[in-house]
Design a protein around this nucleic acid. Structure first.
Lengths: 257, 257
DNA sequence: AGCTCTTATGAATCATTGA
DNA sequence: GTCAATGATTCATAAGAGC
């Protein structure tokens, strides 16, 4: 749906959404952007609506990263976490998205930035979670793990503990799947032309599988080009995407009120 | 040196330390521990001494992770970041330590925890950093790419002058290493007896290489079994370790005052 | 299909230049 | 003086082309 989610969500019924997963706009001093100073206030107004439309056992996943302002990591992200908690959200967990292919570059005071936050907030301590849905086949996991760290990484930084890998392979014998950790290794997707998606499909896919079942309703209040909705649809979930520029809804939404 | 670093550091001269790298005790409600509520106050008293003994162009690396209290990630860590910044420390960067082999286990409301913060604070925007000391082997993609530099590679940066081409070729010819990112993949070391493994040697090693030169002085104010000092010694740096239980200094400290 | 090789580009950051 | 725009730096991935 097109518009500011602050307004659009007012027309939504309570407790109807099972999962909110989104990557909001970053703070930005430029005209048209939200300044770091007013970011928390801006976000919390919308978070009030998020809390209203979210099911009591639902989850809210916030993908964000503090950018550098005047040589420092800005603090509006952690200030937002404190504000959300003060407003009653439970800061249940923090997942790390490790971006395997991060932007290159060299600066005198920092290395390449290769990760982003994925904060997990809930409204109650008893929330829905389907861990078995994100199990990874052992072979696949091992391969992906190897690939994600790349042979280089393995040799790079584990000369001392090189035996670790082989030892673990031995431990895997007999098992077929394992649960992943709270560190997610996904490459950013670069669609060679046209619209860039904020995050790769694998990211919303992981959280949709982890926190919803087929038929549940997924909301992305800052959906951009609609990656979250595309993934939700593919996984058999209903979805609503809201963006000031664009509207995304792939399936007719059943009995929204 | 044995004792509380708050007391011990009072006897230290100003600006003598080139790098502080440490993993402080976590907040803990149990008797003898620092409670989450008073953690920031407890830490900041010591951070005042850190700022006093640290060289103006030195670095302070804080390895920490918020533990779960009553089902939520506790907030004392990010409150500490805000407090440090308020006290004048610059929050320059945040590195993520990805623990390749995290503790097994399964909980109903979260996946296995496999990462920790490594906050990087400085006293000035111009600080010492030796990036070339932490270079890692290049990924295998490079060989193919080296075979023939793409046209875009050569023209992308300076379509106008054309001089960029030669510069670029020179930069890449024969390159075998690249700079790492701010995500560090180290396995935890399990010293099979007694002591809980603080951090693996690779972790302080990375930051000691990145922020100091041989002969510099490294301080770990919560040194535990002294991993930081052992690594510093191996890398040719002087070091001082302080712990309430134990004293660690491997080399005689030259002209400490 | 499967493989190799080529090419574009991604929520980046800093220093410098220009308004 | 501040603030905006431009240039320089650099790595990993997937799409696409070619065989």
């Amino acid at each position: 749906m097109a518009g500011d989610c602050l307004e659009v969500l007012r027309g939504f019924p309570e407790q109807r959404v099972d999962l909110i997963v989104t990557s909001p706009p970053y703070a930005d001093r430029r005209p048209g952007g939200i300044s770091p100073d007013e970011y928390t206030e801006w976000f919390m107004a919308r978070a009030t609506q998020f809390a209203r439309v979210l099911h009591p056992e639902g989850s809210f996943v916030l993908n964000i990263k503090e950018n550098v302002i005047n040589g420092e990591r800005s603090t509006y992200v952690i200030e937002l976490v404190l504000a959300l908690r003060k407003a009653g959200w439970l800061w249940t967990e923090e997942y790390i998205w490790h971006k395997r292919n991060s932007m290159p570059g060299r600066w005198p005071n920092r290395l390449r930035d290769a990760w982003e936050h994925c904060y997990h907030f809930t409204l109650s301590r008893r929330f829905r979670m389907y861990q078995d849905a994100v199990r990874v086949p052992i072979g696949d996991w091992a391969e992906r793990r190897m690939a994600s760290l790349s042979e280089a990484d393995m040799t790079r930084q584990s000369s001392r503990t090189g035996s670790g890998v082989a030892k673990r392979v031995a431990n895997w014998a007999g098992r077929t799947t394992v649960l992943p950790t709270n560190v997610l290794h996904f490459a950013t997707e670069s669609h060679n032309r046209g619209h860039h998606s904020a995050f790769p499909e694998a990211l919303p896919e992981f959280f949709i599988k982890l926190f919803t079942e087929p038929g549940h309703l997924v909301l992305d209040p800052f959906c951009g080009t609609g990656t979250t909705c595309v993934v939700a649809d593919r996984l058999g979930r209903d979805s609503v995407g809201i963006d000031v520029d664009k509207a995304v809804r792939l399936r007719p939404l059943p009995r929204l009120r």
